[in-house]
Design a binder for these strands. Structure first.
Lengths: 232, 232
DNA sequence: TTCTATACATAACC
DNA sequence: GGTTATGTATAGAA
């Protein structure tokens, strides 16, 4: 056997052991986890890009890395959306330094995703409870679900109402605030970011086929712009 | 050459020609475009799933198919988010059939994504204009951008203000509506969906490793539930 | 980062 | 939706 591996090593022909099959479970070693994250995130975005181009699909991807950084892919324009949502509080550069204590950065969509998170968590718990409470008929498809929903309906709506009320207050407050001061101070370490668990660092990517990709460093943010507009 | 291909065909050994290299550009033939979309979307979601598990990343993906359907992947809980956002108007099953003409389904986050779309479109146009107006210094990184932003700041903020005002009205209207009637009629063909360009069909997917995936058919929607809760 | 060998995704065909 | 041959992503090492 000319190409046989040396015990514990490699034959002269093979320079590496090549790719090995891995189990899909959390990588414990932090360093290789980070490496895998980087490589696979790039791969994921590439796949998304290809899917967009090949089929004309529109895709938005938001990734929260284990290290706490935020990456976004978007076609046609998630980068701009992310820019808008995550950097609105960065736009100001001129006047008014009214330090707003509970300043709410204008991240409506993402903020709401987070707003609803707590609510949704509760809902998932309810879902699980329902599944356990209703053992049979599951194979029937939607029956168990509709019945359960029917039972929880009022409660859920009330929860939603509450959330909406909270949101309404937030939005109204923010809108009024904006209307009154018209300017907001630059607050990179905004409490909302921390509250959301999103760090002050986002990296967005757009498919490179439509426009030249430009990298913008802006106040600690790292943005890649590119791509053209279509319907989200 | 034992395995040589017959002219225009295949050798006895090879049953297909196998995968061929393709150019990454829009597939013109509608049928194969649809097939490619299905396969690659599945692949994309699988990759995302693996990335989540391997690295503990949190991912949300929204895909708008060329056929107009909406698919969503989420870990830990974008499926539930999508469920909440896209099916809220489906929950009702009991009373009040007050046909609200301009009924607004409770899709705050996605709705806002769309709300901002028009605004963002304008902004991209501005971005492009800026790039053309400021030829040099681009290699300097952020300089051109910050200057440009500085120039557009007031205008942008005003645009944002307008959008926020619109949103505020929408949210307040919706909240009041909910508080008053507490129930809303089931409107699958909701005008907001059309307005958003999202069809009344969403398919969500979660990583299958955490919970058993359950498929739920609910009023024309097709939802897959699974996955556990973490921080979005 | 870059390099290989290999595992995996998938284009073309049923 | 299944099969096969091949293109591509990537694990492990440097």
């Amino acid at each position: 056997m000319v190409t046989a591996n040396v015990a514990g090593g490699l034959s002269m022909n093979k320079k590496t052991k090549g790719r090995k099959k891995i189990e899909i479970k959390k990588i414990q070693e932090p360093n290789s986890r980070q490496v895998t994250f980087s490589k696979r995130r790039a791969g994921l975005f590439k796949k998304a890009s290809e899917l967009c181009v090949l089929t004309g699909a529109q895709i938005a991807i938001f990734v929260n890395s284990p290290g706490g950084r935020v990456f976004a892919f978007g076609h046609p324009n998630a980068d701009l959306l992310a820019d808008r949502y995550l950097n609105e509080n960065n736009i100001d550069t001129t006047t008014t330094t009214t330090a707003v204590q509970n300043y709410q950065p204008p991240l409506p969509a993402m903020y709401q995703f987070n707003q609803h998170y707590v609510e949704v968590t509760r809902e998932l718990e309810m879902e699980k409870m329902r599944r356990e409470l209703i053992p049979a008929e599951r194979s029937g498809g939607s029956q168990w679900y509709e019945e359960a929903v029917d039972g929880m309906e009022v409660e859920e709506l009330e929860q939603y109402l509450y959330s909406l009320e909270q949101l309404k207050k937030k939005v109204v407050m923010r809108a009024d605030e904006l209307m009154m001061i018209k300017k907001t101070p630059t607050l990179l370490g905004s409490n909302l970011f921390n509250q959301m668990g999103w760090n002050n660092h986002i990296q967005t990517m757009d498919i490179p086929t439509t426009t030249t990709t430009t990298t913008v460093h802006h106040g600690g943010f790292n943005l890649h712009h590119g791509g053209e507009i279509g319907k989200f």
